[in-house]
């Protein structure tokens, strides 16, 4: 009997506490930058696609919901010909972001992806690619990679010596 009265009393007291719930969707949830939501493909500081089609995100994905095909432009720069994420399978674990060697694939704080039709949850490259560097500004993979893919010449990258002159015998 006593416990019932105590429960009612406690509940009554909550009337004067601050509300925890918010009036979603009128009011938006505050999410932290590292919150793992919708997946995007970002661009490097020079406006080029960051994704080099290395397939590491696809192989890291525990539900195998990423499929892509790499291709090359005339300079030998790799980019995905198509890039598909089946969000109806995605578990937002973030392994793809962890695996990405170029900061291309990123999970952003957006979860509002509900659809009436499951087919609409299949995102293609135009749906994924955003015109921003996302969480990691300033990184351009091709400036540190050894190869010349139209971004810099051999030897012009960070931490690179000028190409070897193979006719020279100097030490």
């Amino acid at each position: 009997m006593f416990s019932h009265i105590r429960t009612i009393w406690l509940t009554f007291l909550h009337l004067f506490r601050k509300k925890v719930t918010i009036e979603y969707p009128e009011e938006k949830v505050k999410l932290h930058p590292r919150w793992r939501g919708r997946i995007v493909l970002t661009k490097d500081p020079d406006g080029g696609e960051r994704c080099v089609g290395c397939y590491l995100c696809a192989v890291a994905c525990p539900v195998d919901c990423i499929a892509l095909q790499a291709t090359e432009d005339e300079n030998g720069r790799r980019y995905p010909e198509f890039f598909r994420i089946n969000f109806s399978r995605c578990i937002f674990c973030g392994y793809c972001e962890d695996a990405c060697p170029t900061y291309a694939i990123q999970l952003i704080p957006d979860f509002e992806m509900a659809e009436y039709n499951r087919q609409n949850l299949v995102f293609e490259k135009p749906d994924l690619l955003i015109d921003s560097q996302g969480k990691y500004p300033g990184y351009n993979f091709y400036k540190v990679a050894g190869m010349d893919a139209g971004v810099k010449q051999k030897g012009e990258g960070e931490n690179e010596e000028a190409p070897v002159d193979i006719h020279s015998l100097m030490p």
Binding site: A58, C61, V63, C65, A67, L68, R84, I85, N86, R89
Partner: peptide, 8 residues
């Protein structure tokens, strides 16, 4: 990889 996305 990609089993659930290849034909999606």
């Amino acid at each position: 990889s990609g089993r659930t996305a290849i034909q999606a």
